[in-house]
Amino acid sequence: MEFSMKRVLLFLATNLAVVLVLGIVANLLGVNRFLTANGLNLGALLGFAAIMGFGGAFISLLMSKPIAKWSTGAHVIDQPRNATEQWLVESVARMAKGAGIPMPEVAIYEGDPNAFATGASKSSSLVAVSTGLLQTMSREEAEAVLAHEVAHIANGDMVTLTLIQGVVNTFVVFLSRVVGYLVDSFLRRNDEESSGPGIGYMVTTIVCDILFGVLASIIVAWFSRQREFRADAGAAQLMGSAQPMVGALRRLGGLEAGELPQNVATAGIAGRPAWMALFASHPPIEERIRALQSR
């Protein structure tokens, strides 16, 4: 999979910036001296946190397209087999040209109304739509959905959310282990014979990984919702008017959105917020319509 040099540099710069900020803050707070005295090397921890935080997010990005194809059973259209597939490929090609990006792969999968875009880069992307969406929407509404997905690719949303996920993951890994050492040191303050981390460290780290991970999910979900507003605006620009996208959203508001696999859920067009709105990857459809109408 190809990455533009700009995005590679962005990834490396973000990774380095996170490590530097954590190192500076830890030194200013005296955490470095405390951890070193208790057998923990801060530099090694920072490296471990960065590798774990960005490594998982980066691998997920690289595997996003093949996993999406496998998990949805999407059929990539190499040669259109009917008029619908021909129209679908031509529509995506037109949108991609308007957005100034390479032609994505186009796929169809069986399921309730939904669509998604994924891929590690603009030159290795995929736009997939469900049979349910094609059957329930007008051509103009479906084109608006395609424009929304193409806008996601043009905006680099997959890479952006991966970077954000990597940043918050790094903080989760780092802070969980620092808190674990603090708690473990407190519990064993009168035990001079033991060395190395004890059960307090392991339990605290696991608990903090869960708690901080929940907070991290809220942060990533917030950024995801902002990217949805931007993709809606991009769709309106590609369509030449906000009305087709408004119509598509209104149609989706009256449908039961199809479930998407977790790895592509944030890239779907439909997906009503769960009962915990803070964790929703998409804003309420009503808010998206108001944002488009206020442009």
Results as ranks from 00 to 15, higher is better:
111 G>R: 02
109 Y>S: 06
86 Q>T: 08
90 E>C: 00
91 S>G: 04
118 T>V: 04
91 S>L: 03
104 P>S: 07
93 A>Y: 00
102 P>F: 01
89 V>A: 06
119 G>P: 09
120 A>F: 04
89 V>E: 03
119 G>T: 03
106 V>N: 05
105 E>L: 07
117 A>S: 15
109 Y>C: 09
109 Y>H: 10
115 A>S: 14
95 M>V: 04
101 I>D: 07
113 P>V: 14
114 N>Y: 08
114 N>Q: 05
112 D>P: 01
90 E>R: 03
95 M>D: 06
124 S>C: 14
88 L>K: 01
97 K>M: 06
123 S>L: 15
117 A>H: 08
124 S>F: 15
91 S>I: 01
106 V>W: 08
96 A>R: 00
89 V>C: 05
120 A>W: 09
102 P>D: 03
117 A>D: 07
98 G>I: 08
117 A>P: 09
101 I>F: 09
121 S>H: 10
111 G>T: 02
96 A>Y: 00
97 K>V: 06
104 P>H: 07
95 M>T: 04
122 K>V: 14
92 V>W: 00
115 A>D: 11
111 G>W: 02
100 G>R: 08
109 Y>P: 03
105 E>S: 11
98 G>L: 10
116 F>T: 08
117 A>L: 11
108 I>H: 10
123 S>E: 15
118 T>W: 07
106 V>I: 13
100 G>L: 10
88 L>W: 03
119 G>N: 09
95 M>A: 14
96 A>H: 02
124 S>W: 15
110 E>V: 03
103 M>F: 10
90 E>Q: 10
95 M>Q: 13
101 I>Y: 12
97 K>R: 13
115 A>E: 12
118 T>S: 12
94 R>Q: 14
92 V>R: 00
91 S>R: 10
108 I>E: 11
99 A>I: 13
106 V>Q: 09
118 T>H: 07
100 G>T: 12
112 D>G: 12
113 P>A: 12
106 V>A: 05
109 Y>Q: 03
124 S>V: 12
99 A>M: 09
94 R>H: 11
96 A>L: 00
99 A>H: 14
122 K>Y: 11
122 K>A: 13
123 S>H: 15
93 A>Q: 07
105 E>D: 13
109 Y>W: 10
102 P>L: 02
106 V>H: 06
105 E>P: 02
110 E>M: 05
95 M>Y: 05
109 Y>N: 06
115 A>L: 11
105 E>H: 08
89 V>H: 01
117 A>E: 10
120 A>R: 11
92 V>Y: 01
86 Q>D: 01
100 G>Q: 12
88 L>P: 00
99 A>S: 13
122 K>R: 15
120 A>K: 06
94 R>Y: 05
86 Q>A: 06
107 A>Y: 04
100 G>I: 12
99 A>E: 10
92 V>E: 01
124 S>M: 13
112 D>T: 13
